[in-house]
Amino acid sequence: MSVESREARQPWILLSPALTAIILLLFVPLGFIVVYSFWLRTATGADQAGFFLDNWQEALTDSFYRDILLNTLKIAGITTIVCALMGYPAAYFIARSRGNKAILLLLLMLPFWISYIIRTMSWINILGVSGALNSVLIGVGIIDEPIQMLYNETTVILGLVHFLLPFMILNVFVSLDGIDETLEDAANSLGATRWQAFTEVTLPLSLPGLAAGGLLCFVLGAGTYITPLVLGGPTDAMFANLVFEAIITQLNWPLGSALSLMLLAVLGALVLIYNRYLGMAQLMKGLG
């Protein structure tokens, strides 16, 4: 064997275990649930192979699923906007601060290491009937009886914002940090006010980071079912809860497949649109 052909084969030998795993454990299973979504769950509980459109008809025409899908997108949208409003100024502060940048960044990484379920349930300690806020309010004398503040749509959004905010801050920070600070000074010296310099120079240059953070917040937020289970009430189910219900509780796997694919189609479309206009590189900067 020539040296060249060995050189050419080596990377494929190194890549093959990872690529095989991803093809066998991701792409083939995804293809499989496309097929499975056309099968039918029969009254006996067995799945009948074939080409039935029943699941898709139910998933696409039943207003129950459509309403929850729209509500899920609404919740993810509000979460993303709140994350952007809260996160942008913080990211700006970190990017422009002098002395304590390193410690602020380290602190920003910590939430990524703290379990999602713990961060989610931590709000029960704050807002629950015997939580911190109720004891403060009673202690100060504003209320006499504890109020139930948990288990509604607002607390679901709160939990999601708490979970996703670090993703937003980090992505905006990465793009703000890459902007030459002297650009703002230049704008100032040319007569722009500080606000003008920000809105016309810095803000547009940081939009890719804001978009990357927004995409992550939206997609991760719209795909969750744990937060509504922990912090939501009985009527606050999101679309992923329907998937969980169909697969784990009702064991209706063909319908669950169709619902999963619907979620994938909606969120995948967003990722593709993002990729078309901004590319994946920005997203990877924030993750890596």
């Binding site: 454990l25 991701l26 299973p29 995804l30 499989f32 649930i33 499975y36 997609v219 719209a222 795909g223 969750t224 079912y225 992923a240 998937v243 969980f244 697969i247 796997w253 669950g256 497949s257 999963s260 694919l261 979620l263 994938l264 969120l267 995948g268």
Partner: peptide, 12 residues
């Protein structure tokens, strides 16, 4: 891919 979808696909 949303983790829920990955979970369903792999399980099934």
């Amino acid at each position: 891919v949303p983790e829920v979808v990955l979970a369903v696909a792999l399980l099934l």
